[in-house]
Design a protein around this nucleic acid. Structure first.
Lengths: 110, 110
DNA sequence: TATAATTACTTACATAAAGTAACTAACTTA
DNA sequence: TAAGTTAGTTACTTTATGTAAGTAATTATA
């Protein structure tokens, strides 16, 4: 039984943010509108899951999808106001990571 | 291939925070040290996964585990300084959820 | 005209993570 | 001796994610 004592709104927020990849997708979209393949390459997510996440985030009103009928078709994903409102949070995570996590060793290092 | 263009430290932070349940575990521990069964009941996580998460978080230096050899044994989990440093972030998520998410309907409501 | 290229997906299948419920260890109380 | 308590673990099922190939629509190229 999942009878949490924690505020349901907080729990909901957590369930969005803490779903694998959503944080990185949002973070990536802070750089401005971009297409599917750009996001895919930037964060290393699989197309299958990215497609799923973008639909979820659209449902949540965090991401907006726009179709430009060029050739080949261009589809741009961007953050809505609700999505943009997560920027301070993302920056906090960034700051935290710089304060509390060691620099990750690159492959070339011993 | 997972060749991300995103800062590896940010990515690491995200991988901690965005792992299912870790956010809620940390949030719950902001209420002070508590035992396994308390956390389990409070956030509705399964014992199997809670056990796993607490080990991970201990490894990351975010959570501390203390054994009190009473009867029956009491084991308390608490946040380290590194763990406590996540408090502002948690509060931000809380604030965001209150601003941007609708109150969740209770079971009894129509 | 047929073939290849491009983008944004979807599908089928394999592997990994999480949920469920029963079980264990160490000890105490009835 | 049996039952209760806490903090897990184990075996098994279900769900989520990864991988790689396929598709649709359109244009460019041989």
């Amino acid at each position: 039984m999942n009878k949490s004592l924690i505020c349901p709104r907080f729990e909901k927020a957590m369930s969005i943010i803490s779903q694998r990849w959503t944080g990185l997708v949002i973070y990536q979209l802070l750089n401005g509108p971009q297409r599917f393949s750009t996001i895919e390459a930037a964060i290393g997510i699989s197309g299958r899951v990215l497609s799923e996440r973008l639909k979820d985030l659209e449902q949540e009103g965090i991401v907006k999808r726009e179709v430009f009928p060029e050739t080949p078709v261009r589809i741009e994903y961007s953050l809505t106001d609700k999505g943009l409102s997560l920027e301070p949070l993302m920056k906090d995570i960034e700051k935290w990571s710089q304060t509390w996590l060691e620099p990750v060793a690159a492959d070339s290092e011993k």
